[in-house]
Design a protein around this nucleic acid. Structure first.
Lengths: 196, 196
DNA sequence: ATATTACCAGACCGATCGGTATAGTGAGTG
DNA sequence: CACTCACTATACCGATCGGTCTGGTAATAT
């Protein structure tokens, strides 16, 4: 296929992924039937099975898309010239904002693992996601990814998401943010330290 | 009904709740059909609908049973004569053990909220559960339930559970435990303080 | 001109879902 | 004895599930 190919404005595959992204995330994976995904995408059912082997493959593609989005968002939020504590705070602040605007429906990976506890493909993508989060948090503090304080940041991020989704408590999210900043401060007594 | 009534060794309702407890928790609520619950309980389908209005009512009863079990377990684990930090550590240690023995399938309330995001009855029981947890953690440190450090303990408990279920990482659970103990120590400089 | 490709519309499939209805059993009570 | 009550067993219901199949259209490639 050459670059001159026009094809539809957006391909059936893209529309399906966009539809799956909305529906799976807002209403859950098991509660979202294939027919609904297809109708919502404005696409023929056959187009789904031309692009994905089955529903599970669609779910995995959806999660990979979410992982990609997480990375993009994380990089967009980060200012490498800011002090460590501010870079960390930005991560939590983004979460707190989405809780308050009621656009938060939980971590797509956690939700997927809970909805499909025996699906190994889901576990694999989720493991990738968690590694990415850990690495990113480590980068924000210029710490080795294996360090104890990185584990603590991961824990606080887990906590904030659960408190947001299950507890519906933005104050808890902000408290987690405070804890994370204190953690960074404790390891960087010089305060206004900068990233790479 | 007099006390002389024998009835079956265990009633159909009890067997249904036991069956639901196992299946909902291990395989998820949506993945567990009514027929399976009934068969696993060794009970007639009609007996289910004689005791519960519908599946949702069974789910709520299951969660109430889990809440009851959580409280009983928490009290059994607690030694009010131990120092605060040990009382807190016991909560996390119990969690870490169940992760390592692969008997941990996540928080039933978190799982239910994610599986049935639009069910208000599930939200209600879950809110109760979270209040119970908060109060218990506050009691373990003799702190006012509204205090900041109680919020932090709640966050660390959320974190430990998520790290266990999604991250499958007992080391993270233990790290959360350490953080909780440090938190208690910081607020109780006299160390070997005792409860009520 | 022809073959291929990507797509749409929708009928259709067997399986399973939550839930109901029918019929019968066995122990406890008046 | 008749009656109730909790229970079992199973057939059945409409709806929906994930997935397949047929048939047709429009654009591209050779």
């Amino acid at each position: 296929m050459h670059s001159s190919t026009i094809t539809p404005i957006v391909s059936a595959k893209e529309r399906l992924l966009a539809s799956a992204g909305r529906l799976f995330h807002e209403h859950g994976i098991n509660a979202t039937g294939i027919d609904l995904v297809v109708r919502n995408a404005g696409v023929a059912k056959a187009s789904l099975y031309n692009n994905f082997a089955n529903k599970e493959a669609l779910v995995v593609a959806y999660l990979e898309q979410e992982l990609d989005g997480w990375i993009r968002n994380a990089l967009a939020l980060d200012n490498p010239l800011s002090p460590h504590r501010e870079r960390i705070a930005a991560v939590f602040e983004d979460l707190a904002r989405s809780v308050e605007s009621n656009t938060f429906h939980g971590c797509p990976f956690t939700n997927a693992v809970i909805e499909l506890p025996h699906c190994t493909a889901v576990r694999t993508v989720t493991t990738n996601y968690r590694a990415v989060v850990r690495t990113h948090l480590a980068n924000l503090t210029d710490k080795d990814a294996a360090s104890i304080s990185t584990s603590r940041l991961v824990l606080l991020y887990d906590a904030a998401i659960t408190a947001a989704k299950v507890g519906r408590d933005a104050a808890l999210v902000r408290e987690a943010s405070t804890m994370a900043q204190e953690l960074v401060d404790a390891h960087n007594p010089g305060d206004t330290q900068h990233g790479r």
